[in-house]
């Protein structure tokens, strides 16, 4: 593998400054600087706060990644950077940094799609991606089902959230229950002691007529309101809120729909593999239920370890390395930032 190209990837689409180094499909370094603590008191990511943090973290994170990988910047053969989708101002810092590196090192630069990178990262952990595969990406910013024929060139959207992202719903319910931001890990933690069947919260877009129009789409806004109504009613009745039960029941409603639709997509599209990525993939109940349902349906499940599910630079480097390996042309130096880059555009020209 020492002959495989050394690729450095930069990710800055939200609140994580990530720099990863891979050689071929071997992970050498995954340095991440997060500004999440600065956003906590606002209950959500503030774009300008994230962008300022990216600027301060960029050079130190690049240097840390190189030190961990045991390489010098001058050893790097190619660069990859997230061009979108994401927060425009945050993406701009990473893209400008990547271009400066490309200029200084005289190596090709690949502007890549954040969602495709979430898919490609699993190659580092579980080897080549069987094609076709279905990918479920669920995070604070995205909830998508993708049909992946070739992660470097052919990624098609099957469905996505029509309102809130799954991770956003976790943040909002956490706040409602008095748990800290970001909500995902805290809801997961308290739900362990709760009964997932305690409250029958609604499963969005699963009714027969919804399945006709929104077969693989998600909706978590109605669920969020239902949880808020239930909590307010309990408060009005003077009852103590059973936080663990509410958290477990809410979480069950989210992961039930995510996994049900993901497995159906695999079955209906003849994909033998389901890949799960994004921050919500770190949720223990999502992993357990996905495993159970995939096993029942004869589908192989692939989930990267939590550190590679959340936003990071290794995933960008992983996709960059695949693009290099498949001989795809690099991007031009006037590469653009596109905050709403469609998932069908894996590589920005």
């Amino acid at each position: 593998m020492t002959d495989a190209p050394l690729v450095l990837g930069i990710e800055s689409s939200c609140d994580e400054t990530g720099v990863g180094v891979v050689r071929g499909s071997t992970l050498l370094a995954d340095a991440v600087a997060s500004s999440v603590d600065e956003h906590a008191r606002f209950g959500g990511v503030i774009p300008e706060v994230a962008s300022r943090a990216h600027l301060e973290a960029m050079v130190p994170t690049i240097e840390r990644a190189c030190a961990t990988a045991g390489v010098r910047l001058t050893d790097v053969d190619a660069l990859a950077v997230t061009s979108g989708p994401g927060l425009a101002g945050a993406l701009t810092v990473g893209v400008a940094a990547a271009k400066a590196l490309a200029l200084a090192l005289g190596v090709p630069l690949y502007g890549v799609n954040h969602l495709a990178a979430h898919v490609a990262v699993d190659i580092l952990e579980h080897g080549p991606l069987p094609e076709p595969s279905v990918a479920l990406l669920a995070s604070g910013g995205h909830s998508s089902l993708l049909f992946v024929t070739d992660v470097t060139a052919d990624v098609r959207p099957l469905g996505q959230t029509i309102d809130d992202a799954a991770g956003e719903a976790f943040d909002k319910i956490a706040r409602l229950l008095g748990l800290p931001f970001p909500g995902g890990p805290h809801v997961d933690r308290v739900a362990v002691d709760g009964d997932p069947a305690a409250v029958a919260f609604p499963r969005g877009l699963t009714a027969r007529h919804d399945l006709e129009r929104h077969r693989y789409d998600f909706s978590f806004s109605g669920l969020k309101t239902a949880v808020a109504r239930w909590v307010e009613r309990a408060e009005a009745d003077g009852r103590t809120i059973p936080v663990a039960d509410v958290a477990a029941s809410f979480q069950e409603a989210v992961v039930d729909v995510l996994t049900r639709k993901a497995v159906a997509a695999c079955v209906e599209h003849g994909a033998g593999h389901l890949l799960i990525g994004g921050g919500v993939a770190a949720n223990s109940r999502l992993r357990a239920l996905a495993e159970q349902r995939c096993l029942a349906a004869g589908i192989r499940l692939r989930v990267p370890r939590p550190g590679l599910c959340t936003d990071n630079g290794a995933m960008v480097a992983a996709l960059g390395a695949q693009l290099v390996a498949r001989g795809r042309p690099p991007s031009a130096l006037d590469l653009v930032v596109d905050s709403s880059l469609p998932v069908t555009t894996v590589r920005v020209g």
Binding site: H54, L55, I62, L73, V93, A97, A104, L105
Partner: peptide, 19 residues
């Protein structure tokens, strides 16, 4: 204006580090 300003600053810092 912040977003534009950061383009120059991050470019300078990364070029400086790489060169």
């Amino acid at each position: 204006p912040f977003t534009g300003l950061r383009v120059g600053v991050v470019t300078a810092r990364v070029l400086g580090a790489a060169l």
